[in-house]
């Protein structure tokens, strides 16, 4: 990939992340940290590519560990975030759903 294209992607992504978080109420900080923890679980995809290209034994072993860890990040991040968010209920349940 062209270095400048990458720079543009990085720059825009950085501003996006900043914007998304800056309007979050304090009560959602922990779930959001957990949610963003889940989002970087996309590393799983890269780990799969690395393992899929591995040739020697060492490469395969490290690639295997990468996929293992990446899957743990993605799945674990999702489960704990969902469990946390499940608990946010308003006292007037009907109205909040609308």
């Amino acid at each position: 990939m062209d270095g400048f294209t990458a720079l543009y992607i990085f720059m825009l992504a950085a501003f996006t992340g900043y914007e998304v978080i800056s309007k979050v109420p304090v009560i959602l900080h922990t779930p959001l940290m957990s949610g963003s923890n889940f989002v970087h679980g996309i590393v799983l995809v890269g780990a799969m590519v690395a393992l899929g290209q591995a040739e020697t034994g060492t490469e395969t072993l490290i690639g295997f560990i990468a996929v293992l860890l990446g899957a743990g990040n993605a799945v674990g991040g999702y489960v704990v975030t969902e469990r946390m968010l499940e608990m946010f209920k308003s006292s007037n349940k009907g109205a909040s759903k609308a």
């Binding site: 990939m1 990458a6 992607i9 990085f10 992504a13 950085a14 501003f15 996006t16 992340g17 900043y18 998304v20 978080i21 800056s22 900080h29 959001l32 940290m33 963003s36 923890n37 989002v39 970087h40 996309i42 590393v43 995809v45 890269g46 590519v49 690395a50």
Partner: peptide, 23 residues
């Protein structure tokens, strides 16, 4: 993500990187 030429990793990673820094 950049090393692997994978834009999804680049975007997700950097979004979390900057959001996490702000947090």
């Amino acid at each position: 993500g950049y090393v692997l030429g994978n834009p999804a990793m680049m975007i997700a990673g950097i979004v979390v990187g900057s959001a996490g820094t702000l947090l």
